Simulated assay, not measured.
Amino acid sequence: MGKTAILMAALFAGQAAWAERGTQSDVPDAMWQRMQGVSWHEGMGCPARATLRLLTVPFNGFDGAQQLGQMIVAGEVAAEVLDIFDELHQAGFPIERMQPVHMFLGKDDLSMAANNTSAFNCRVVGGTTRLSQHAFGTAMDINPVQNPYVTSGGTSPAAGKAFDEAAERTSDVQGIIRAGDPVVSAFKARGWGWGGDWQSLKDYQHFSRSGH
């Protein structure tokens, strides 16, 4: 086989790989160690390591390039989460970043400020002692800057203030999530709830299996 043919074969193989559905695996030893006391805390009632799955997910980057990201979810939802993100990938929906929350010291505000799409984080709901749905690995946040958490007390992350009013939430905003779009439709088709439907506040980035 000539050099040109080899290069073309590699190119097509690479394109095929990007077109494939994501994969799931056990949480690796080194990653689990980094999660200790950061995104997983003993004694809080969060899932055991054996019940969590590491997903490796192809996605469309904000720069137009094909990328691979990772997130951790509960094993019970791993397959359907991979199905959802495969739909979003095929639909061309853009995501800026996708890394496990321990990469941001387990801090939700740092992950949001980085516009990071993530799922599992063993933490409580802010201002309460109640475990977040993220603590069970059955909730995720997508593009938090373009899809901020909005209450009467303010908007998080701070950069999300550019996208917290209805007039700003237009379809031409890269990475935005809107009612009836492919993102909301993919989650709702599998019974997940969207924080953009909430009445007392809006959490446009948030999807959860329980609806909370």
Rank of each mutant, 00 (worst) to 15 (best):
S25L: 09
S25M: 15
S25A: 15
S25W: 09
D26W: 15
D26R: 15
D26G: 15
P28G: 15
P28A: 12
P28E: 12
P28D: 10
D29N: 14
D29G: 15
A30S: 05
A30K: 06
A30P: 00
A30I: 09
A30V: 12
M31E: 08
M31N: 02
M31F: 07
M31L: 10
W32P: 03
W32H: 07
W32L: 09
W32Y: 13
Q33E: 12
Q33R: 15
R34W: 02
R34V: 08
R34E: 09
R34I: 06
M35W: 10
M35K: 09
M35T: 14
M35C: 12
Q36R: 14
Q36A: 03
G37D: 08
G37C: 11
G37Y: 13
V38G: 10
V38D: 11
V38E: 11
V38C: 12
V38I: 15
V38K: 13
V38L: 13
S39H: 01
W40I: 03
W40F: 00
H41Q: 12
H41V: 08
E42G: 10
E42I: 02
M44E: 03
M44Q: 14
M44V: 02
G45M: 13
G45Y: 13
G45L: 13
G45E: 11
C46D: 05
C46P: 04
C46K: 04
C46M: 05
P47K: 03
P47V: 00
A48I: 05
A48T: 07
A48D: 05
A48N: 08
A48Q: 10
R49I: 11
R49F: 08
A50H: 01
T51H: 02
L52T: 07
L52M: 10
R53F: 04
R53M: 01
R53P: 01
R53H: 03
R53A: 06
L54C: 05
L54F: 07
L55Q: 06
L55Y: 04
L55I: 06
L55M: 10
L55F: 06
T56N: 04
T56D: 01
T56P: 00
V57S: 05
V57W: 02
V57T: 03
P58K: 00
P58L: 03
F59V: 14
F59N: 13
F59R: 11
F59M: 14
N60R: 15
N60P: 08
G61I: 08
G61R: 00
F62P: 00
D63A: 07
D63C: 07
D63S: 08
D63L: 04
G64W: 09
G64A: 08
G64I: 07
G64C: 12
A65Q: 09
A65R: 13
Q66V: 04
Q66A: 07
Q66Y: 03
Q67M: 12
L68P: 05
L68Q: 12
L68K: 06
G69D: 06
G69T: 10
Q70P: 00
Q70G: 02
M71N: 08
M71T: 04
M71R: 03
I72L: 01
I72H: 01
I72W: 01
I72C: 04
I72P: 03
V73S: 03
V73Q: 06
A74S: 09
A74E: 02
G75L: 07
G75H: 07
G75S: 10
G75N: 06
E76K: 13
E76R: 14
E76A: 13
E76F: 00
E76V: 12
V77A: 03
V77G: 05
V77I: 13
A78T: 14
A78Y: 04
A78S: 08
A79M: 12
A79D: 15
A79S: 13
A79L: 10
